[in-house]
């Protein structure tokens, strides 16, 4: 079936199998491999993207369900001039990533979370990121990064 999705602000049109997951579509049809696959039970959150400005695990959606909508992936988060989004910058500053495999999903989930909770407590952040697993950092610096990003006051989410 033919679908048309705005991905990172650009129009994407492809003919896909109806069973194609959004994450497969992004990785295989759009060639946007920054979004990762870490499980097959929608548990790990490595594939988190923004759909219509809200964070979603892109393995829980069919590509067809995103038809006509807009998606932001990690590749589309920074400004056009390469300036990092405050959440990306905070992950760097606070050493919130190690192997990097969960990072795209974690950053996108954090962007979506902060859009809804711009002034979170530590507990809020921990519960807000419950759907994203990281095996390297023990979450300590991820939580610090999200709190630091919140403090910048420049963390409006939403697709571009």
């Amino acid at each position: 079936m033919k679908i048309s999705i705005s991905v990172n602000g650009g129009a994407q049109e492809h003919d896909v199998e109806p069973r194609t997951l959004l994450v497969q579509y992004l990785r295989e049809d759009c060639g946007l491999t920054g979004t990762k696959v870490g499980c097959d039970t929608s548990s790990c959150g490595a594939c988190t993207v923004l759909f219509e400005g809200e964070s979603v695990k892109s393995c829980t959606m069919l590509a067809a369900q995103a038809d006509g909508g807009s998606v932001t992936t990690i590749e589309g988060l920074a400004a056009a001039d390469g300036t990092l989004h405050p959440v990306q910058q905070a992950f760097h500053d606070k050493h919130g990533l190690q192997c990097g495999y969960c990072t795209a999903g974690m950053v996108m989930a954090a962007v979506g979370f902060l859009d809804e909770n711009p002034t979170p407590s530590e507990r809020d952040v921990r519960e807000g990121l419950e759907g994203n697993l990281c095996r390297c950092t023990g979450y300590h610096n991820i939580v610090e990064a999200v709190l630091a990003a919140a403090e910048t006051g420049a963390v409006s989410g939403g697709s571009k």
């Binding site: 491999t33 990690i74 988060l77 920074a78 990092l84 992950f91 760097h92 050493h95 990072t103 795209a104």
Partner: peptide, 16 residues
């Protein structure tokens, strides 16, 4: 010292 590795990971271009 902050990491050299981060840039490509944070913008999704680092390849696995």
């Amino acid at each position: 010292v902050k990491r050299k590795e981060d840039a490509g990971i944070l913008n999704g271009t680092t390849e696995y």
